[in-house]
Amino acid sequence: MKITLTVNGRKENLEVEPSTTLLEALRMLGLYSVRKGCDTASCGVCTVLMDSKPILSCCSLAVQAQGHSITTVEGLEKDKDFEEIRKNLLLEGADQCGYCGPSLLLTVYSLKKRNIKSLQEIQKYLVGNLCRCTGYHSQLRAIKEFMEVGE
């Protein structure tokens, strides 16, 4: 079936099956920052923003996303907050293989709009973003600074 998705502010027309996932559709559009990982809603590497909230594109259907605004890291390149968190992660060496990087950036970016007050709260909201190489400490240092929270 033919659908129109709003991705990074642009209308994109696609031909998909009703059971095509949003992940598959976004990669069909060449948005390879949206990664395929566990396919079981566990690792979080397929995270995208739907109406500014992070969701898992591996268990969302492309057809469900019609009428919503989808954002990937490609759509935030000129965003000030996005640039800041990206810089913080780089300075802390918090990105090794890079596979989980875009999903982590999007989740943290969306958390900036919430009233997060503690490191514990940050950790709670990030449980769904698994990283297999940094050990999280460097990421958390960068995120704490970005969110301006203490211990």
Binding site: K53, I55, L56
Partner: peptide, 12 residues
């Protein structure tokens, strides 16, 4: 509810 699975999943 806020302890269920991940933030991403709870959003959907």
């Amino acid at each position: 509810v806020s302890d269920i699975w991940s933030y991403q999943l709870r959003n959907a």
